[in-house]
Simulated scan of single mutants.
Amino acid sequence: MNALSRRIASNFFALTLTLTALTLSTSALASEVDRLAERLQVGGQPMPVASIRDTPIDGIYQVRLETGEAFYSDVEGQYFLVGDLYENSGQGLVNLTEQSRNDERAARLAGVADADRVIFRDTTESRVEIVVFTDTTCPYCRQFHDEVPDLNAMGIEVHYLAFPRTGMNGEGARQLQQIWCADNRSEAMTSVKREEAFSGTVDCDNPVEAQYHLGMEVGVKGTPAIVLPDGRMVPGYVPAERLAAMLGLDG
């Protein structure tokens, strides 16, 4: 075997060892996560675990429940820590919990089909899209909607999801269901938010209740709740020009 062949063989052997170590490490992590999921109980009752993630701290895991709540736990599920985890980096404090929350929020919203949204866009080339949880009975939602044409003119698509702030038994839920059941949802949305006369049915297979629960799971507390492409959530009304600046657009 010549020198080149020996080097190739040596590199291949080293790569094989590295891949084997990574596989074992991944398997060990998966095993620990599985054990933790089984051990997470309070008062003898299992917790509704949605996901468990590794953290930069050995032996500490981020647990997210089906309710959207999150906390940190040791591998035994004996000690819990509620709060945000920060990294003291060279650029200052970095909120790792918020980053994870944003990533998960963006992923959840990406799973909502366009057919289940009320989308406002115009002929301007689209530069970015935002998701907005809205309620027709919310004055600040109406104020935001008045500026949607300005946002569209700047290339910002507005994708509405439903969030009846008083719950599914309120007037907002009824109006939102009427909008989602309408033949032209965007026209219906504008009419209702302008408080114009509008009559429609709620007797259709609509996603309003599912989106209401989705909103609660991703941290919506009120409306409007604006979600940027990276998953960051901006609560409340934001003027069009300021929102464009937050998106890195120059208007």
Results as ranks from 00 to 15, higher is better:
residue 118 V to E: 06
residue 28 A to Q: 08
residue 193 K to R: 08
residue 91 Q to G: 11
residue 80 F to T: 14
residue 217 E to A: 12
residue 6 R to Y: 06
residue 135 D to T: 06
residue 91 Q to V: 01
residue 220 V to R: 01
residue 155 G to S: 03
residue 15 L to C: 02
residue 198 F to M: 09
residue 231 G to Q: 01
residue 244 A to K: 12
residue 152 N to E: 13
residue 51 S to W: 06
residue 37 A to W: 01
residue 235 P to K: 01
residue 248 G to K: 12
residue 47 M to Q: 05
residue 153 A to D: 10
residue 177 Q to L: 04
residue 221 K to W: 08
residue 117 R to C: 04
residue 225 A to F: 11
residue 239 P to Y: 15
residue 92 G to M: 00
residue 171 E to H: 10
residue 154 M to W: 08
residue 125 E to S: 14
residue 56 P to L: 04
residue 89 S to I: 14
residue 119 I to E: 02
residue 46 P to R: 14
residue 19 L to N: 11
residue 213 H to F: 12
residue 87 E to L: 13
residue 34 D to G: 02
residue 93 L to S: 02
residue 17 L to P: 09
residue 113 A to V: 05
residue 24 L to N: 10
residue 149 P to T: 11
residue 137 T to R: 08
residue 112 V to A: 10
residue 211 Q to T: 02
residue 107 A to S: 13
residue 203 D to P: 00
residue 156 I to W: 03
residue 76 E to W: 14
residue 237 Y to P: 03
residue 51 S to I: 03
residue 218 V to I: 12
residue 221 K to A: 12
residue 84 D to V: 01
residue 75 V to I: 12
residue 50 A to G: 07
residue 249 L to T: 00
residue 159 H to G: 01
residue 137 T to M: 09
residue 142 R to I: 02
residue 55 T to Q: 10
residue 57 I to H: 07
residue 116 D to M: 02
residue 219 G to R: 10
residue 5 S to L: 14
residue 219 G to T: 01
residue 121 R to C: 09
residue 199 S to W: 09
residue 7 R to Y: 04
residue 218 V to N: 06
residue 174 R to Y: 12
residue 9 A to W: 13
residue 33 V to K: 05
residue 232 R to F: 09
residue 142 R to H: 00
residue 9 A to H: 12
residue 223 T to H: 10
residue 97 T to H: 11
residue 172 G to K: 05
residue 101 R to T: 13
residue 50 A to P: 07
residue 141 C to K: 00
residue 234 V to E: 13
residue 177 Q to H: 07
residue 2 N to S: 15
residue 148 V to S: 03
residue 182 A to V: 10
residue 247 L to M: 01
residue 211 Q to R: 07
residue 75 V to R: 09
residue 200 G to K: 00
residue 81 L to I: 12
residue 123 T to A: 15
residue 97 T to E: 00
residue 45 Q to D: 14
residue 107 A to K: 11
residue 57 I to T: 07
residue 87 E to M: 11
residue 11 N to V: 15
residue 72 Y to S: 06
residue 121 R to F: 05
residue 147 E to H: 09
residue 214 L to P: 10
residue 110 A to P: 03
